[in-house]
């Protein structure tokens, strides 16, 4: 019995040791096919154009599927398309055409080559897209580039990944369209300049900032409310100001002068600096004695505005502040 068990054990050990040798782990597990990099909704939205660079470069990425690198080159060619954008608009907005996403205007981009090669041993090729004049775009509109694979000039490709929508996000030093950026009011006053009704309000709310150009942002004036962003276009146009950040001040290199203008139609007047409301953008570093520092981006504004010509002006003394991490911005 003992000998019998020993033999069975040896046989099992033999199987265990040699059974795997018959499987070729080096073989291709799938197949080599060209695809255009995108998420499950066929949108590639991981890139953000920097408004400070003109032009800035983003990439249309064609990848090669398969568990092994190919030992031959794969040709890739793309052509402009619009079917995905139509599908995106129809499925997201249906008949609400005002909110439709748009193709990026031609004046805002150029592609030096619509063709590339995924070389043997590599898994992707990046086709550069140069973006410029992005300051002409509305931060409230979604812009896309729509491309699909050109079958006649592309080797084997995945039909489910043959088209892509490239989302065009924009950012500058102060804000981005990739996510909502809010600055909080602190030590701020909105005073109605009416001798019979001198109402003073102390906003403690937040104000969403949108990037406009390399050094400019848009925000709502005073403590005006945007309401539901989906239906807020008219309110935004009527109640927003444009703040442009300029040169460093002579007094403090961490502070820069700002200019306040109407975004569209608002009657807004920049007022002379008073106290800490000196019309500057300040990198405010608040340090504690133990060496820790908190970093804030601050707009220190002094202006007045009114929504109607017959209304009294509202004087705004505002500090709009957002905490940030300088190290994270370098990532």
């Amino acid at each position: 019995m003992k000998k019998y068990s020993k033999n069975i054990g040896l046989i099992l050990l033999g199987f265990a040791l040699f059974s795997c040798n018959s499987y070729d782990f080096e073989q291709e597990q799938y197949k080599n096919e060209v695809n255009l990099l995108s998420n499950s909704q066929m949108i590639y939205d991981r890139q953000v154009a920097d408004l400070r660079k003109d032009p800035d470069t983003i990439y249309l990425v064609a990848g090669l599927s398969g568990s092994q690198n190919s030992n031959r080159d794969f040709r890739v060619a793309v052509v402009p398309a619009d079917s995905l954008l139509r599908a995106y608009n129809k499925s997201n907005f249906d008949i609400d055409t005002v909110r439709y996403a748009k193709l990026l205007p031609e004046e805002c981009f150029s592609i030096p080559s619509m063709q590339g090669v995924i070389k043997a041993g590599e898994t992707q090729v990046r086709l550069p897209i140069y973006l410029r004049n992005l300051d002409k775009l509305s931060p409230d509109t979604a812009y896309f580039l729509n491309y699909r694979i050109d079958p006649s000039k592309t080797d084997a490709y995945n039909p489910n990944k043959k088209e892509v929508l490239l989302r065009i996000y924009m950012e500058n030093e102060f804000s981005t369209t990739k996510q909502n950026v809010y600055y909080n009011y602190t030590t701020s006053f909105v005073t109605t300049l009416d001798v019979n009704n001198p109402l003073v309000r102390r906003p403690t709310s937040s104000n969403q900032l949108f990037p406009l150009g390399s050094n400019s942002v848009r925000m709502l004036a005073g403590d005006e409310e945007m309401g539901d962003y989906k239906n807020a276009l008219n309110r935004i146009n009527e109640r927003s100001i444009k703040v442009t950040v300029g040169e460093k001040t002579a007094k403090n290199p961490m502070a820069r002068h700002v200019t306040i203008e109407p975004y569209k139609t608002l009657d807004v007047v920049q007022m002379p600096p008073v106290d800490m409301y000196d019309n500057t953008f300040l990198i405010n570093i608040i340090s504690t004695p133990d060496g820790r520092s908190t970093y804030y981006k601050e707009f220190r504004l002094h202006y007045k505005y009114r929504l109607n010509p017959d209304d009294p002006y509202r004087e705004v003394k505002a500090i709009l502040r957002m905490e940030y991490s300088p190290r994270a911005e370098l990532l």
């Binding site: 300049l193 001798v195 001198p198 002379p272 009294p312 002006y313």
Partner: peptide
């Protein structure tokens, strides 16, 4: 370069 007269006056 700045002479400030309040709106309310």
């Amino acid at each position: 370069d700045h002479i400030l007269i309040p709106d309310s006056a």
